[in-house]
C-alpha cells in the first residue's frame, strides 16, 4: 500500500503553479524514469499474491463452488447463508471479543509495565523476559493447556494443595474461551511493552522531573507526558493489534482442538477458524462460495474498524 500512495503523491505536484513544478529538472526526469522499475516488482507481487486472490475471492463469494466442478452463479446466496448460520455470528463475536477485551487488557498492562519499567534497574533484562512469550510458538501454549488445565493437571493439583476442593472446570465449554483470551494477553503483552518502551525511552527525562517537582503522581505523569508524547506509536500499536487479532488462529486451534481430526469446539471459533473449518472440511464437500463470503465480510469489518480507529486516534503530533 505504501507503494501505491507513493505513486499518488508523485502526481500531486501537478496542481502546483507552473514555476514550482520540478518537472523539467534533469534530476526529476531521472527519478521519474526510475520510478516504475523500482515499483513494478513489488506491484507485481502485490497483484499476483494479494490483489488477484482478493478479486478472485470476491468473485467466488457470488458463486457456488466446491473447488473442482464449474462455478455456479449464486448471487448473494452465500452472504444470506452466513446470516442464517448462528455460528458465523459466534465466530465474528469471538474475534471482536479478542480485538476489544484482549486488546484493552494488553494495552492497560503494557502501559502499566512501561511505567514500572521506565525507572527500574535492569529494565532491559526484564523487558526481554516479558517479551519472551511472544517468540514462543502459540502451539506450545495450546499443548501446554492440557498439561496445566486438565482436571488432574498442574493448576488443579496446586489448588487442591492450597485447600481448594472445587476448582473451576478450566477446559469446560464456558471457561475455555476466556482462558484462551487470558493466554493471549500473556503472550502478546511483551511485544507491545517492547514497542511502547522504545517510544517512552525517547521522552526526555527532564519532563518527568519537572512534573515531579510540580507534584504530579504516577498517573498524572502518564496522562500528561507519556501518553501524548507516545501517541503516534500507540496508534500504530492499535492498528497492529487489530490486524493480528483478526488473524488469531493457531492458538484456538490447538487450545481447544486435539491431534485427531475434530477441531476445537465451535463456541471457541474465531472468524479465521470459521473460514478454515469450512474450507478444509474433512468429510464434507467444501463450500468455497460461503468461505470466501465469510472472508470478505471479516475483511470489510476489519477495514472499517481500522479506519474508525485511525480517525479516533488522529492527533497532531507533539514535537519534542
Amino acid at each position: 500500500m505504501a507503494v501505491l500512495t507513493a505513486g499518488m503523491r508523485r502526481s500531486a505536484p501537478s496542481s502546483l503553479p507552473e514555476a514550482a513544478q520540478p518537472r523539467d529538472t534533469p534530476l526529476a526526469r531521472r527519478r521519474r524514469r526510475l520510478f516504475w522499475p523500482f515499483v513494478a516488482p513489488a506491484l507485481a507481487f502485490l497483484t499476483v499474491f494479494y490483489l488477484g486472490p482478493l478479486l478472485f475471492g470476491i468473485w467466488t463469494s457470488f458463486h457456488r463452488w466446491d473447488g473442482y466442478a464449474p462455478m455456479e452463479w449464486n448471487g448473494l446466496g452465500s452472504y444470506r447463508a452466513l446470516l442464517s448460520d448462528p455460528f458465523f455470528r459466534t465466530s465474528m463475536l469471538n474475534t471482536f471479543k479478542i480485538l476489544v477485551f484482549v486488546g484493552a487488557a494488553v494495552f492497560v498492562i503494557a502501559f502499566a509495565l512501561t511505567m514500572v519499567l521506565r525507572d527500574m534497574a535492569g529494565k532491559k533484562f526484564v523487558r526481554a523476559v516479558i517479551f519472551f512469550p511472544h517468540i514462543v510458538n502459540a502451539m506450545v501454549f495450546g499443548v501446554l493447556a492440557g498439561f496445566m488445565f486438565n482436571p488432574n493437571g498442574l493448576v488443579n493439583t496446586a489448588l487442591s494443595a492450597l485447600g481448594v476442593d472445587d476448582p473451576p472446570k478450566w477446559l469446560g465449554s464456558d471457561t475455555i474461551f476466556p482462558l484462551i483470551m487470558a493466554t493471549m494477553v500473556c503472550t502478546s503483552t511483551g511485544f507491545y511493552v517492547a514497542i511502547l518502551m522504545a517510544a517512552v525511552d525517547n521522552i526526555p527525562h527532564y519532563l518527568y522531573e519537572d512534573a515531579e517537582l510540580a507534584g504530579a503522581g504516577a498517573f498524572r505523569k502518564f496522562w500528561h507526558i507519556t501518553l501524548p508524547l507516545s501517541w503516534d506509536v500507540v496508534g500504530v500499536c492499535a492498528v497492529l493489534w487489530t490486524i493480528s487479532s483478526v488473524k488469531v488462529f493457531e492458538l484456538v486451534l490447538v487450545f481447544g482442538g486435539t491431534s485427531t481430526t475434530s477441531g476445537p469446539s465451535i463456541e471457541t471459533w474465531t472468524s479465521a477458524l470459521y473460514i478454515y473449518r469450512n474450507a478444509f472440511t474433512g468429510t464434507d464437500i467444501p463450500q468455497f462460495g460461503t468461505v470466501c463470503a465469510a472472508g470478505i465480510v471479516s475483511l470489510v469489518l476489519v477495514a472499517v474498524f481500522t479506519v474508525l480507529l485511525r480517525r479516533l486516534m488522529r492527533r497532531d503530533p507533539v514535537e519534542f
Binding site: N152, L171, T258, T260
Partner: peptide, 15 residues
C-alpha cells in the same frame, strides 16, 4: 469418570 466435560483428549482415555 469425573472431568470428562472439561478435559483435553487423550486425558480421559489414558485415565
Amino acid at each position: 469418570l469425573d472431568g470428562y466435560d472439561a478435559s483435553k483428549y487423550p486425558e480421559q482415555q489414558n485415565r
